[in-house]
Design a protein around this nucleic acid. Structure first.
Lengths: 292, 292
DNA sequence: CCAGGTTACGTTTTTCGTAAGCATA
DNA sequence: TATGCTTACGAAAAACGTAACCTGG
């Protein structure tokens, strides 16, 4: 059963005439005859009595009107679903490292939500790159936010990136506090807390240290830098190397202290990406434009 | 927007695969691609993300599912409307002479209604043949019940007919009561009440009388035989000629008396007919079978 | 190399308009 | 005779299958 037959039926029923319906719908007279016949054959019943010049609905035809109407209306609603005042309604799914999720994204998302209140945000935290990669490739998330070297993902398009300084930071009783031009190497002989080595800046840090002919042997190794920050605050005489954005507040509150390490250069970038084969929906586009 | 595209869309959404949907629906792989593309073009949005081997719904695709479902369901209900357990639901429209409507049809319709309680009966009374003819030709009624000579309507098919005797009947103080072999001519010199001459049996009666070289000059002329019967009962020394079925009860109750007129032969038939070009709906067929 | 979606192209099916046919007012 | 529905037939359009193509795992 096709929509065109239903439209034809309703017009004929309204106008009481095949000819008039044909004119209104832009068909020839004969086409309407055929369309009504098709419908009658499909339904196995007669919809109109053709009595000479008089065309009237049969009892079944009368009864069929509401069915035809509701079917056509449902079709029409389906056709208009994308056009109607959407006001950007839908879902936007993120996978983010915990550092960005707790320190950068909250502000952005709050602002975005204020502008697009009907876009639901789903945020999955993960500090494991494999998990984020997998979610992106499985299309379980729309956008991945991570902090790493540039162009980390090969199958991704980056639509936002910002260099994030990686700093050496210590709690208040750390020995090297206040000392100028500390060398990275010096930190290795004091207690050092780092995140898991699979995580971007620590991974890079380890390579730098190895290139120096040294070995990274941290006292404590934690997966999340947010968790690590809390540990650091509560530990004794310890330092860590991590993105500034994670410790910014703690430093400003005086809970942690920055160290002046002059050979520390870890080029970490916060990056928002999506899979290169993914269709950029209007919702995604709204977010992309929003952060640009 | 055609139903086939909607079915394809829902299958692909369910199975997460163009190929699998093609197999289930009996299409080739390429056809599904085209169908989804058509739908996406019509809607102006992307319904699926094709990421290598992975096919997943976009946000719009997810949102479209309920629209597709409800449209398809409405279509399906429309397709099944004639097949579903109808239990003979609908309307049957009658036009009947008042004589049949008050004396014959009530019993038939009561029985019919007991068997088909969901068929609504609409009964229009008329004693004017032109009105009944017009209603039949305008398809304002399905069935015409009338009492007249056989084959009165040229454009009608008769599915039930029964000869109805036309009798001479009088009130209790009529002079000729009890007399054997009264001649029709004798009645003309006593008060005679008849229906309008346009009505079947009176029309025929007038011709018979004219053929006898006499003239019909009735005392009273009423359009409805039912009304005439009541007048007759309440009049003095009067007779009438009318179908027996109209006066049967009154005679049996002793309110009126039959006269023994031996040259009275008016061949009236009660007939149920419908227009020859009218489609015989299941409902009409039920009634036709019922009275046969 | 395989699996899965896309594209191009020829075949088949469906739809449509034209015009003749038929019945009715 | 004029109007309105039906029917037949050829043209146009749409849908479909095949198969080559491209891409990602």
């Amino acid at each position: 059963m096709e929509t065109r037959n239903l439209s034809a039926f309703l017009r004929v029923a309204e106008l009481g005439s095949f000819t008039a319906a044909a004119n209104e719908l832009g068909y020839s007279q004969g086409s309407i005859t055929v369309q009504i016949q098709q419908l009658e054959d499909e339904l196995g019943t007669k919809l109109f009595d053709r009595m000479g010049k008089l065309t009237t609905l049969t009892s079944d035809g009368q009864a069929f009107i509401p069915y035809a109407r509701s079917a056509l209306q449902a079709i029409q609603e389906a056709e208009n679903f994308a056009q109607d005042p959407h006001e950007m309604r839908g879902v936007l799914r993120f996978s983010s490292s915990s550092s960005l999720a707790t320190n950068v994204l909250p502000g952005i998302i709050a602002d975005f939500n204020r502008e697009y209140p009907h876009i639901q945000i789903i945020m999955r935290l993960s500090d494991y790159m494999e998990e984020m990669t997998s979610r992106m490739k499985q299309n379980e998330v729309d956008i991945v936010c991570h902090l790493d070297t540039r162009n980390f993902f090969t199958d991704a398009i980056t639509f936002y990136e910002k260099k994030e300084p990686v700093v050496a930071v210590a709690n208040k009783d750390y020995p090297l506090i206040g000392k100028k031009r500390v060398k990275l190497r010096d930190l290795l002989y004091e207690p050092l807390l780092v995140t898991e080595r699979a995580i971007g800046h620590t991974n890079y840090l380890e390579k730098v240290i190895n290139d120096m002919g040294e070995v990274l042997q941290p006292t404590i190794e934690v997966s999340s830098s947010v968790a690590l920050r809390e540990i650091l605050i509560n530990s004794n005489r310890s330092a860590s190397i991590m993105p500034y954005l994670v410790v910014k507040e703690a430093v400003e509150a005086g809970k942690l202290v920055l160290l002046d390490v002059d050979d520390l250069d870890i080029p970490m970038w916060s990056q928002f990406v999506y899979h290169k084969n993914k269709w950029v929906s209007p919702i995604m586009k709204a977010f992309i434009d929003f952060v640009s």
